[in-house]
Design a protein around this nucleic acid. Structure first.
Length: 617
DNA sequence: TTAGGGTTAG
């Protein structure tokens, strides 16, 4: 009978059944109460377990620890803490095993006062130098960013056990102290694969990818077998540096020594392919996965979106929904990013309505992605409504809204929003300045734009990047101040890129400045000798100015380099169908209808150079 | 029954 009861407990999750068994246990088999309780220590029944436990007048320490660790494992940290302090108030048996669980709860919440109280209790309870307690204390202090206390506990350890070293090392890493983390690593006499993982992660988090990869090599030279965590860490580094060759070498290690079945490892391989631009290989990896979790689906969707293949990203999302996989915040953000790139009003509205209908809690990530999508699809009003409704805004929400207003031609609103952002104590970053400088160019506010540009360094300690300089060049060029633009370019500390010279060249065509055009085109032909538009623009200018010899020289140069002109395609979406056509294209069945709709509703028409016509200019 | 390190995003 007793065995059958325990069996029923293991398979029952319905509360009414459990209550019946509980009644039977209490009445007929009181010695089975601890077994009954332990059987309840799983996700669906843990709350009932706690009520049963609290009704036991004097639980032994084994049972108390089981309750504590079960709560801790299920991430019910607040409850674990309450149980511990209840036990302590009741003067119940608390032994050496209780402390790590409850410290883990304090570290995870995190709550520093309670953690400090437990630290103070440790000597009172007679637990002086237990390595598990000391390690948990270090971990707790690391998680509450009290590195001094972590160091103090560490200095009391006489044992050379690597785990506390790993904990403190990760503490140094998290507080940005790479030097001390490395010093600690170097002084370790006993290392484990985890020690190597911690130091490799430390360098990776601080952007020192080459040193991280060097340590990975050293780890193998010293005979340490990389585990799944090493592999995932190193694959993520290969992804960040877009080193496909190295990534493939790491992948080979898995084929030789590890099970490929690990979903996290497979997702890391997928991500490595994605970041190296090998999306088709990523898809193959994705197809090979036996089971796919939400992370794998999201990674594949983001992979297509990040590589400009938005339609495929949306197809994967549809597939995900058709197999009843529940999307999370990250999935939705990736899908919205794909819609934003697509710039399609209809698809954007469709996905936007779906996301808004998901009844998620407020999410700054999803809301920012939503407003970004709406503004990139041209619906700034809707973007503003979302932005205004957001209870919490972070830097990226502000940047998305400022950029959204600026790119849609609402320059003055974008600038007003920037002042509001400063008023609300949100510090801007370099992306914010790309937004407001763009706003100034669209609103023709040259002086204000220059003022913002100079304030980057003087007020916000931000070094202007090449994209900010390009904005200033654009600012001068749009108001016809070509000489100022050129003077500005010459004074730059950073190397001007194709955007900068290209902006100047286009302005030279508009304002017929032949001299500056010549200078710009020479730079452009150096930087991108295969771009046909530079040759064409300049040769047309030469022709306009009657400089036939120069025009011929440029065209010959273009021919000799085998540079061909790309045809400009325009496309429009109508009734969920994408219609593409060339200039003067009469072949499209509904092109007249499309023109009509486009003109009447001022729908977006984008010009995309795409096709090599294989004909000389 | 007790400790450390990893994958997806605007």
């Amino acid at each position: 009978m007793e065995q059958r009861l325990i069996y029923f407990l293991q398979i029952s999750i319905r509360l009414d059944h459990l209550k019946q068994i509980h009644a039977l246990v209490v009445r007929e088999f009181p010695n089975l109460v601890p077994d009954f309780l332990r059987a309840l220590l799983k996700q669906p029944t843990i709350r009932y377990a706690r009520r049963v436990f609290e009704a036991i007048p004097q639980p032994d320490s084994f049972l108390s620890n089981s309750i504590l660790s079960a709560h801790s494992k299920l991430s019910l940290h607040r409850e674990a803490l309450e149980i511990f302090f209840l036990l302590h108030r009741r003067n119940a048996q608390v032994n050496i095993f209780s402390i790590p669980s409850v410290l883990k709860a304090c570290a995870s919440l995190p709550v520093s006062i309670e953690g400090n109280q437990i630290h103070a209790l440790v000597p009172k309870l007679g637990f002086f130098s237990n390595i598990f307690i000391q390690t948990s204390l270090i971990d707790f202090y690391v998680k509450i960013s009290d590195i001094d206390s972590a160091e103090m506990v560490f200095s009391e350890i006489s044992d050379k056990d690597p785990v506390p070293y790993n904990c403190l090392m990760s503490g140094y890493s998290k507080s940005g102290n790479v030097v001390d983390a490395r010093h600690l690593f170097d002084t370790m006499t006993q290392r484990t694969a985890s020690s190597w993982n911690t130091i490799i992660t430390c360098y990776a988090h601080h952007g020192e990818f080459n040193e991280a990869l060097r340590l990975f090599e050293l780890m193998r030279v010293q005979g340490f077998q990389p585990n799944e965590i090493t592999i995932v860490t190193v694959l993520s580094i290969c992804a960040k540096v877009a080193d496909l060759e190295k990534g493939l070498k790491v992948k080979k290690l898995i084929d030789n020594h590890h099970s490929r079945a690990d979903l996290i490892v497979q997702t890391a391989i997928l991500e490595m392919y994605v970041k190296c631009g090998a999306v088709d290989e990523a898809r193959m990896e994705f197809n090979q996965m036996n089971c796919k979790d939400v992370v794998a689906w999201s990674a594949m969707i983001a992979g297509y979106a990040q590589n400009g293949r938005s339609r495929e990203a949306l197809e994967v999302f549809e597939e995900m929904r058709s197999v009843c996989s529940e999307p999370n915040e990250v999935t939705l953000v990736s899908v919205l990013s794909a819609c934003a790139q697509l710039g399609s009003v209809e698809v954007g509205e469709h996905i936007g309505n779906y996301v808004e209908g998901q009844k998620l809690g407020p999410s700054v990530y999803v809301d920012s992605a939503l407003l970004d999508m709406y503004s990139k699809c041209g619906n700034v009003q809707k973007a503003c409504r979302i932005f205004n409704k957001m209870q919490k805004k972070d830097l990226i929400s502000w940047n998305s809204m400022i950029g959204g207003l600026a790119y849609n031609g609402f320059g003055e609103d974008a600038i007003a929003l920037f002042y509001k952002m400063i008023e609300e104590n949100q510090k801007p970053n370099d992306v914010t300045f790309v937004g407001i400088l763009t706003a100034c160019t669209h609103a023709g506010l040259v002086d204000l734009g220059l003022q913002f540009f100079h304030s980057m360094k003087s007020e916000y300690s931000l070094m202007p990047k090449v994209e900010h300089c390009a904005c200033i060049v654009d600012l001068f060029c749009r108001s016809g101040r070509l000489e100022d633009a050129y003077h500005f370019i010459r004074g730059l500390e950073i190397e001007p890129n194709v955007v900068i010279w290209g902006t100047l060249l286009s302005a030279c065509r508009i304002y017929s400045n032949f001299e500056l055009a010549k200078i710009s085109v020479e730079k452009l032909l150096e930087l991108e000798p295969d771009n046909s538009s530079n040759y064409i623009l300049f040769s047309n200018m030469c022709a306009d100015a009657g400089q036939w010899e120069e025009a011929r020289r440029i065209r010959n140069l273009m021919r000799s380099k085998n540079v061909r002109k790309l045809a400009a395609y325009s496309w429009i979406e109508l009734d969920n169908t994408l219609h593409k056509f060339l200039v003067g294209d009469k072949s499209h069945l509904r092109s007249s209808e499309i023109y009509e709709v486009a003109n009447g509703l001022s729908l977006q028409i984008k010009w995309v150079p795409e096709l090599d016509l294989e004909q000389p200019v």
